Structures are given as structure tokens and as C-alpha cells.
Simulated assay, not measured.
Amino acid sequence: METARLASLIAATLATGLVSGLFYGFSVAVMPGLKRTGDRTVIEVMQRINVAILNGWFLLGYLGAFLFTALALALHIPSDGREALPALIAALVCCTASLVLTGKVNIPLNNALEKAGPVTRIGDPAAVRRAFEGPWVRANIWRTLLCTASFGFLCWALYLHGG
């Protein structure tokens, strides 16, 4: 049982770190870089990223962060390692909030961008960009902060688990 507790905690920490890093990369590099480009470029690049990111490796990290954190929490409840429970609960709350935010804001914006159609056929690319970019970037900053907080709580739980 101890091996399963530690393994789930390590898996949760790694998956959350990867997702946090992905969102951070968008916050500090991808979106600021795209901000300096034309409307059609932003639309086309984000449409392509939204298709490319839907793969098994992304889903393993994205869904794994939640599932492994929930598993680590469940496995720590009946253990002697209860001192890690507050950190695990906080990590799961932050991870869940990030998933909800993504589902309520980022994914619908991605879907709307896709529904705009091929970039060459969009009549008013500036309007499509305005409807997408600002709200998407703000939500991404929040999910970056939430995932980073979750990662920090998981690191703390690892410390408490081993201490």
C-alpha cells in the first residue's frame, strides 16, 4: 500500500508539473509571440495547435494530473500519512478548478475558433481574433496559476510523505 501511495503521488506531481509547464509556456512564450503577428496568423496557428494537442501524450498528462491526484488523496486517507492530506486536498481543488476553467472557457473558445473555418475564408479575421485571444489568454493565465499551485501543493505533499 505504501508503494501505491508514493507511486500515485509521484505520478500526480509529474503529470501536474508537465501540464503546468505547458500552460506556462503558452502564457510566457506562445501567446506573447503570436500577439505580435497578424490576425490570420493567430487564427491559423491556434487552429493547428488545437488539433495537434489532442493526442494521447497530452491527455495522459492533462487527465492524469487529476486522476493521479485524486488517487493519491484516496490512498492517503486511510494511512499514517494523514499530514499530507491538506496539501493533497488543496492540490485536487486547484487541479479541478483548472479543469473546470478549461472546460468552461478555453475549450469553447477553441471550438469557436475552429467553427470560424479556414483562415482564408474568414471575412473579418480581426473580429474572430478579438473574440478569441483576450478571453483565452486570461483564462490560460488563471489555469497556469491554478496548475502551478497544484504542483506546489503536490511537492509539499511529497515532502510530508517522506518526512
Rank of each mutant, 00 (worst) to 15 (best):
M1P: 01
E2K: 15
T3M: 14
R5E: 00
L6G: 03
S8V: 04
I10F: 04
A15Y: 10
G17Q: 08
L18Q: 11
F23P: 02
F23N: 12
Y24V: 09
A29W: 14
V30T: 15
M31E: 11
P32R: 15
L34I: 14
L34Y: 12
R36P: 11
R36M: 15
T37E: 04
T37D: 09
D39N: 13
D39C: 12
R40H: 06
T41P: 06
I43W: 06
M46S: 02
R48Y: 05
R48E: 09
I49W: 02
V51Q: 04
V51D: 03
I53A: 12
W57R: 12
W57L: 10
F58H: 10
G61S: 10
Y62K: 10
F66H: 07
F66V: 08
F68M: 09
T69L: 00
T69D: 00
A72G: 00
A72T: 08
A74E: 09
L75D: 03
I77D: 11
P78I: 10
S79F: 07
G81A: 14
G81M: 08
E83Y: 06
L85P: 13
L85Q: 09
I89D: 04
A91H: 07
T96F: 07
A97F: 12
A97H: 10
V100R: 12
V100H: 08
T102D: 07
G103L: 11
K104A: 13
V105I: 11
V105N: 12
V105R: 02
V105G: 12
N106R: 00
N106E: 11
P108V: 00
L109S: 02
L109D: 06
N110M: 01
N110L: 03
A112I: 01
A112W: 02
E114T: 02
K115N: 01
A116Q: 08
G117P: 02
V119W: 01
T120Y: 09
R121I: 01
R121E: 00
I122H: 05
I122Y: 00
I122G: 07
A126R: 07
A126H: 08
F132I: 10
P135Q: 03
N140K: 09
I141M: 07
I141L: 06
T144N: 08
T144H: 00
L145M: 08
L145E: 07
C147S: 12
C147K: 03
F153Q: 01
L154R: 08
W156A: 13
L158H: 10
L158T: 14
L160T: 14
H161M: 14
G163F: 15
G163E: 14
